[in-house]
Amino acid sequence: MKKVDYSGEVARTPDDVYAALTSPEFWRSYAEANKLPAPQVETVDEGGATVTRSSMTVPVPSQARALAGDSAAVSTTTRWASRSAGDVRVDVVAKHKADVTGTVRIEPAPAGSRLSFAGELNVRVAFLGGVAEGQAVKYVPQAFADLARRLAAWQG
Rank of each mutant, 00 (worst) to 15 (best):
A152G: 14
T50C: 02
A38P: 10
P61V: 06
L147H: 08
A136N: 09
V17A: 04
D146Q: 13
V44E: 15
P108I: 09
S71P: 08
P108S: 14
V100Y: 00
K2R: 12
K2V: 03
Y18Q: 09
E133R: 03
S71M: 03
A66W: 03
A49S: 14
V51S: 07
W80M: 04
E42D: 14
A38L: 13
A64M: 14
K3W: 00
V10F: 05
L36F: 11
L67H: 04
R12M: 06
V17C: 10
T78A: 06
V92K: 00
E46Y: 00
R114N: 15
G156W: 06
P141I: 03
F117G: 00
D16Q: 15
D15L: 13
Q155V: 13
V137Y: 04
S82H: 08
P14E: 13
L121N: 01
G47F: 07
P39N: 07
R149N: 10
A31L: 07
M1G: 12
T57V: 14
T57L: 04
L21F: 05
A64D: 04
H96Y: 12
T76P: 01
P141R: 03
T101F: 00
V140A: 02
A136E: 07
Q135W: 06
K35H: 11
V125C: 07
A81H: 09
A20F: 02
P110A: 15
R89C: 00
P24W: 10
P37A: 13
Q40H: 11
D5W: 02
R105A: 10
G129D: 08
E25I: 07
A94I: 11
A81D: 08
A64S: 07
E133Q: 13
A148W: 06
T52I: 14
V92S: 01
E42M: 09
A64F: 15
F127G: 07
